[in-house]
């Protein structure tokens, strides 16, 4: 599946496109098919997100899993500061990242 991510303009937090809005949980991410570019342009122009981009992910039993390790680190937070994890970490556990 193709999903969208970016950072919140004000807070800088990592966010994921859930079809209507930007969510803090990667597991809310929806498949945008080939609409990615269009949604990104509109959302960026509306300042609802900063520096967004499209990426490939897969839907697994544990939820949505980005294909690249960098995006999985973005989804959960630094692997070395598990105390600061994005709340979805409890769902997936850290093995999910690596």
């Amino acid at each position: 599946m193709n999903i969208l991510t970016g950072n919140d303009l004000k807070t800088g937090e990592v966010v994921w496109w859930d079809g209507q809005n930007w969510s803090l949980s990667v597991h809310d991410a929806v498949d945008v098919g080939d609409m990615g570019e269009q949604i990104l342009a509109a959302e960026e122009a509306a300042r609802r997100v900063n520096v967004p981009y499209a990426l490939v992910a897969s839907r697994t039993e544990e939820g949505v899993r980005p294909a690249h390790i960098k995006d999985r680190v973005r989804a959960l937070g630094p692997t070395v500061r598990r105390d600061l994890a994005v709340p979805t970490a409890s769902k997936t556990g850290w093995d999910w990242v690596i």
Binding site: N7, T11, G12, E13, V14, V51, K70, R74, G77, P78
Partner: peptide, 8 residues
Amino acid sequence: LYLQLHAY
């Protein structure tokens, strides 16, 4: 002020 992996 940079934009990094998780935040500014």
